[in-house]
Design a binder for these strands. Structure first.
Lengths: 195, 195
DNA sequence: CTCCCCATGTAACACGTTACATGATTTG
DNA sequence: CAAATCATGTAACGTGTTACATGGGGAG
């Protein structure tokens, strides 16, 4: 349901092709609603067969033909309905946390490395968000200042999220390091002689 | 893959039944890795047929028979392998944000209501996390102080996440309210006379 | 010459969700 | 008497992922 609605939402901004929709997803909502190319084409076919979108085939000059999709009245109605419908709960799929919970028997250094690697990836993502937030060219599709503000806020959500993750990782690493210092008497570490 | 690994992880703490596994999931990792009952049974059958877990059927006195699953050596090896394997990226499915991005044409009050409702639900979730964090009885399965610390940290992640969401919603509501004040000349609002 | 961009799609598979079915025992 | 708890499971469906296939044009 949400995928269809999002497609209708993008088409409401500007009628376009499946290919371009993929890019729109990647460039805006991907961080909280990821989709693949296959999903988009599949859903577009479904939407078309139910009369929620209309297709116009435009011959591509040299390039492949483009199929430009646009919302029908029924499509617009469906979008409006979705906007007013009750929200489903959010959900998270967080492989790091899952692994973390079962990782107590890993060597402290291994676990720490896992967290460190993850943090590095996050810093890249953060920079990405920052760039998108500061770049005005992304907002060219916005239909109003209100819409631009909404989009800015959605990017800020991503920024805040990255910072939270980074902070949490720092805290986790510190606390785990501290707990190792408190219980250093692991068999393997017993080699080192006392001063 | 992650589901199997998590099941092996729980069985490593204590051999148990599918039914109980469901409760363990619900009581600990559900906020970042939700599963349904069907998934668990399906996966247990798979794990058993591949020899990663062993089953012992215990006759239930009146109650249905219990099938107690425990890890085999192969299962333990698979778990260890997973713990050391590279992490898949986290992903979020956030219906509120998705709707938010396409909601600029909704009446400001409707959108604000959507955010407010969501915040209310979050406050309940937050209280839930707080309770779990403060209750020591959840940590009885922990095999070491280190493991308890890890579990505490995972709950703190949930707490931090809820607070982030609530903060973001406050900020979003304020900013949107401010932008309405700045552009109050909507056709519908034009009825009110000045001074 | 190779790779990337544009643009379409399909097939198979993996994973997740909903709803149903059974049945004794305990609790309100 | 109704509802929840313990405990198993299946069937159908819906959604998401991976990999493949096609094919011209432009850039390095």
């Amino acid at each position: 349901m949400s995928l269809r609605a999002a497609i209708l939402g993008f088409l409401e901004l500007e009628p376009t092709t499946g290919y371009t929709l993929r890019q729109r997803f990647a460039g805006s909502v991907a961080s909280f609603w990821s989709v693949t190319q296959s999903q988009i084409y599949r859903e577009l076919h479904g939407l078309a067969s139910e009369g929620l979108v209309a297709v116009s085939r435009e011959p591509g000059d040299g390039k492949p033909d483009r199929k430009v999709y646009s919302n029908t009245e029924a499509g617009r109605a469906t979008l409006q309905q979705w906007l007013r419908a009750p929200l489903e709960p959010m959900q998270l799929r967080h492989p790091l946390l899952l692994k973390f919970v079962f990782a107590s028997e890993l060597a402290p250094a291994t676990l720490d490395g896992l967290l460190a690697d993850y943090a590095e990836g996050l810093r890249a993502t953060l920079a990405d968000y920052q760039a998108r937030h500061d770049a005005p060219e992304i907002f060219t599709l916005a239909r109003s200042p209100r819409e631009a503000e909404i989009w800015r806020l959605s990017i800020e959500h991503g920024l805040a999220w990255c910072r939270l993750e980074l902070d949490w990782i720092d805290r986790a690493r510190e606390r785990l390091a501290a707990s190792v210092r408190r219980t250093p008497a692991r068999p393997r570490a017993a080699r080192r002689k006392k001063g």
